[in-house]
Amino acid sequence: MKNLLTDISGVRVGHADDARLASGVTAVLFDTPVVAAMDVRGGGPGTRDSALLDPVNTVERIDALTLSGGSAFGIESGGGVQAWLAEQGRGFVIGDATVPIVPGAVVFDLLNGGDKKWGRFAPYRDLGYAAAAAAGDDFALGSTGAGLGATTANLKGGIGSASAATPGGVKVAALAVVNAVGSVTVGDGPWFWAAPFESGDEYGGRGLPPSFTPEMLAMRLKGGATANAGENTTLAIVVTDAALTKPQARRLAMMAQTGFARAIYPVHAPLDGDIVFAAATGAKPIDPFVELTELGMIAANTVARAIARGVYEATALPFPDALPAWKDRFAP
């Protein structure tokens, strides 16, 4: 186990980004189509092909998921991933046509200091293609891909990932893009809200503060009193090797959202577009009640860990007044 989303067999992850743009794309590819669903809790989501994931709709399986910066402009990144998959002959077959199924979601990073004057067409379709072409078993965390331009209320955000297994051997892993309106750390200190779920020292091993003061529990928002709706989003992808139906995948996504509440304060606000995608490769049958409940519980913990790792591994953007990275402030 590498503590990455790719600990699930048949899953590959690729990044593509542009330092001048201060934005990028992350593509999650599945070697064979997977059952998938999603759960939306934030008030300002931006998505592509999300209706396909509704359990009542026809398409049962997807080929990839795309996460992107760029707000609504980034939705085009899914077209780039789709183009790469089409070249490989992947997709949903309808007569003589083959259509790759690539849902996705975006975060808002248009005000992070990067150069967004790209001319007539945004670069996200090309970044999506490059991310798909780069997909493999190993991938970077922190300020890369869709997390390059991500921020939180007080620290630089980024890409995080984590994995775990149930006592019965069913694996679950998460990847998160942390661009939250709230804070992932407690007050002005080094402690992560997700500290109780940390595995080893994967995000510094600092634990929780000895006590909580009113100042620690005060609301911190990105932009302070000028915080605007739609400028923030945390996205997560949860993948398991369990065999799930679309309704069961939806339930897994709903339970995994609990991990957001364990790692971000505040969360699921009108100012966020928080989304969890859940996908199942189908390798291991599970009991639909007790074992699915256990899987959802562990998935939520894994999402919380992935969110904390996204901030812990981030590096600051090289622009005036850019937010510091966690390691800039608290690393020994």
Rank of each mutant, 00 (worst) to 15 (best):
G169K: 15
A16Y: 03
D272Q: 11
F319I: 07
G46K: 11
I298W: 11
S183E: 15
V40T: 14
N154Y: 00
A16W: 04
Y312I: 03
N228A: 14
F277L: 07
A134Y: 06
P318F: 06
P100L: 13
V106N: 02
D126E: 15
N232V: 01
A299K: 09
R251M: 11
F212I: 05
P55C: 07
D96E: 15
R309T: 03
G119R: 13
I101Y: 05
G142L: 06
L217G: 01
V11W: 08
P247D: 07
T233L: 06
F319A: 12
G89A: 09
S211M: 10
K327Y: 02
G205M: 10
E60A: 15
D287L: 09
A150V: 01
F289W: 05
A278C: 08
Q257F: 04
E202Y: 13
A269F: 01
P123G: 03
E198M: 11
V177L: 09
L217N: 11
G80P: 03
F260H: 12
G80K: 08
A164G: 03
S161V: 04
L111F: 14
L221R: 10
G187A: 10
A300I: 01
S77T: 02
T58Q: 13
A308W: 14
I286N: 07
I264P: 03
A331T: 02
A19S: 12
A308Q: 11
A225G: 01
P324Q: 12
R120Q: 13
T66K: 05
G145D: 01
N3R: 15
H268Y: 13
T233K: 10
V102E: 04
G207C: 05
G224D: 06
D54W: 09
A314N: 07
P167H: 12
A304S: 15
R329E: 10
G10W: 10
D138G: 08
G296S: 08
G296L: 08
E291N: 05
G145P: 09
H15A: 03
L148G: 00
W118Q: 05
I307L: 10
A225K: 14
G10T: 04
A105I: 02
F260V: 03
Y124I: 00
L52G: 00
G80Q: 08
V276T: 09
G200M: 12
A280I: 06
G310S: 11
G157A: 06
T281K: 13
I264R: 08
A130G: 00
M255W: 04
V25L: 12
A19E: 15
P288Q: 12
S163I: 00
V102N: 06
P266D: 04
G91T: 08
L271E: 02
